[in-house]
Design a protein around this nucleic acid. Structure first.
Lengths: 192, 192
DNA sequence: GACGGAATTCATCACGTGGTGAATTATGAG
DNA sequence: CTCATAATTCACCACGTGATGAATTCCGTC
């Protein structure tokens, strides 16, 4: 039957929830029909509330925090704890936005715009400020940041996208303790 | 005009070349029309030579070597050089199959079957044998292998898929020298 | 309780997808 | 030279996609 449903409308929120799941699974190649299906609603509601599938993707994917803000407290840490602090912070944020992160990376692998945005996200605004703070030799900043990005990106890929065990289900603290040394070395250890 | 072209047919090979490029760019969401277009040929030739788009993808993507074979010589290295040898070997192979690797990972992010295959590829057949050889404490093998996989997967993502500079264009030796220490620590260093 | 506006579904569209089969042309073996 | 066979294009199909607009039903306000 067409026509408005009885009671207060929860459709917009249920679309967001469903979209988060489905986008996290398939990236933006997810289907409006599948999202709407999971939300128990007609696909036309997506256009109604979000203009288009892309609009919905943007909303789902931009509930994001600016990494620069998040990472700011790390700049106050002692040099010995810098990597640990950085990872704790990043994992904290990402664990609570894991479906957004998965959707972003899944899509970024085939979308240059989004790939650039993700590079900025992780490398420019997340990692480089920390490098500049703790290892300010200008001739080394790019190298150190890139190497750190490599390790961090691999963590994201394994934990949130490919969901490799035991990384995917490990406690945040466990992940931090095991990976921080590598990051710490890239940050202030010897280069090569 | 329809009908056979004059001269010997290079179509099959040109389809393979075009497909390697396009699949590397977009993963298997690439279009038969685009591949055929780049090859200067009608899309129907894909079905003719490879049965289906999936068949073409499989062929392009399975020119691959078994990592277990490739990695075998690493098992002879001295413990101090193990990570360096492993990375040198892997990068050597991957640099010469980089489009295949990019296509695989781009697709694996949205395809559970392929994701599992890739996990086997990198972790089970590439990394774990090396861990068992150099760090055979059974209670630690899984952890060490997973941590190494994290770093290696990040390298693949940055160098071949997202093409982050300076990682993407760096000389193999440069990459090995800078990343080997982290891998080496995961392999035989202290855990946490 | 009447009525404007919001919510919802439905039928439908235009389009891009991969795939198929017939028609056409060149090749190469006998 | 002949003719089976392979190579190639073309027209076309069935299908799934995202989107649109009208029709229907409910909500809230006056």
């Amino acid at each position: 039957m067409s026509g408005r449903r009885r009671g207060p409308s929860t459709t917009r929120q249920e679309l967001l929830d469903a979209a988060r799941e489905v986008f996290a699974d398939r990236g933006d190649s997810a289907t409006t029909r599948e999202i709407a299906g999971k939300a128990g609603v007609d696909p036309a509601m997506i256009a109604h509330y979000f203009g288009s599938k892309g609009g919905l993707f943007d909303v789902v994917t931009s509930l994001s925090v600016d990494p620069a803000d998040v990472v700011a407290p790390v700049l106050e840490a002692s040099p010995d704890d810098a990597a640990r602090e950085l990872l704790t912070t990043l994992i904290g944020v990402w664990d609570s936005h894991s479906s957004m992160l998965a959707a972003l990376l899944r899509t970024a692998t085939r979308n240059k715009t989004l790939a650039a945005q993700m590079r900025t996200f992780i490398l420019d605004r997340g990692i480089r400020p920390v490098v500049i703070r703790f290892s300010p030799d200008p001739s080394e900043v790019e190298t150190r940041a890139a190497l750190m990005a490599t390790q961090v990106a691999g963590l994201v890929l394994a934990r949130y996208v490919l969901r490799w065990e035991p990384i995917a289900s490990a406690e945040p603290a466990w992940v931090v303790e095991h990976i921080a040394p590598a990051v710490q070395r890239y940050l202030i250890g010897p280069l090569e």
